[in-house]
């Protein structure tokens, strides 16, 4: 009945503890970063004001921008890898019976709740200089010096994909399961081969899921700190590492804040782009 849909605006008071927390730990901190990004940092002294020095610096110092591009590149590599590995799994999950699907879901979802650092430790033990792979290959006499499996982009991408694959598979699965299978049956009854059914029906209809998954993984990948530090050593630098370093070692809050806003801007741009694409693919 229509009586319940009105709702009571007094109920919104229940939000106040949460909103109060967010004001202290989310809105005010963000505002402070915004203000700081326009402050001046000279001789370890921060002057609040309206200066563009920090933004000019990160755009012109040659390093920040390069690392920013590298971060974007890295995020793209991670996103594409997740898509390539995740799509077939999502397709299989859709085709499976309930039992198999539950197990697949378990293996896909459980990483979401498994510590990133534990997963990175696992990869260190496998890919490290004296990790399982190098040890074994040297034992067998196939190689004499350890292969560089870690402390490079490859190692970082591998370890991050291991963590973020779930974020790709879930939206893909969501989009695939939403496709009415009678549409595919109709296509094949009209004479389309299984491959053509996939290319002309299934794939296009799953594009909203592809967009959502890619956006999510890309955004998450832009913010990675831990895995590049562990798996990349100092050979793979990302913008979050630069931000951390500016604050923890250089105490340069204004520049760190400007970089953080640069990161947010990039993520915002990605979200807008994704919304555009989503509209195009009919999500």
């Amino acid at each position: 009945m229509s009586q319940t849909q009105g709702g009571n605006s007094k109920a919104w008071w229940l939000l106040s503890p949460g909103v109060g927390l967010y004001i202290l730990t989310f809105f005010i901190p963000l505002a402070m970063l915004l203000v700081l990004s326009f402050a001046k940092f000279e001789n370890s002294v921060t002057t609040i004001g309206f200066f563009f020095d920090n933004y000019v610096k990160i755009m012109t110092d040659g390093i920040t921008l390069t690392i920013f591009y590298r971060t974007v590149q890295l995020a793209l590599m991670i996103t594409v890898s997740c898509l390539v590995l995740g799509y077939p799994v999502a397709v299989l999950m859709r085709r499976s019976g309930p039992r198999a699907r539950l197990w697949l879901l378990f293996f896909i979802v459980s990483p979401l709740l498994t510590s990133i650092i534990v997963r990175n430790v696992a990869w260190v033990l496998i890919l490290g200089r004296s990790g399982i792979i190098n040890d074994t290959l040297i034992d067998w006499g196939w190689i004499s010096t350890p292969l560089p499996l870690m402390y490079n982009t490859f190692g970082v991408v591998l370890a991050v994909v291991h963590v973020y694959l779930s974020f790709m598979v879930l939206p893909l699965f969501g989009a695939l399961i939403a496709i009415d299978s009678s549409i595919e049956e109709a296509a094949s009854s009209l004479g389309a081969s299984p491959l053509r059914v996939f290319l002309t029906v299934t794939l296009p209809l799953s594009l909203p899921g592809v967009t959502a998954g890619c956006t999510l993984v890309f955004i998450l990948s832009m913010g990675i700190y831990l895995t590049p530090v562990i798996m990349g050593g100092n050979f793979v630098l990302t913008l979050p590492m630069l931000i951390t370093d500016s604050v923890r070692n250089l105490y340069n809050w204004p520049v760190a804040s400007a970089m953080a806003l640069m990161l947010l801007a990039a993520i915002g741009a990605m979200v807008l782009l994704s919304a555009r694409v989503q509209k195009m693919v009919g999500g």
């Binding site: 967010y22 202290l24 730990t25 989310f26 005010i28 901190p29 963000l30 402070m32 970063l33 700081l36 955004i219 998450l220 832009m222 913010g223 700190y225 979050p240 931000i243 951390t244 604050v247 809050w253 760190a256 804040s257 953080a260 990161l263 947010l264 993520i267």
Partner: peptide
Amino acid sequence: SPMVLPHIVLGLGIFRI
């Protein structure tokens, strides 16, 4: 909303306050 913010930025802000 805190979910969509990279934790690195959130951490930076919370550290500041």
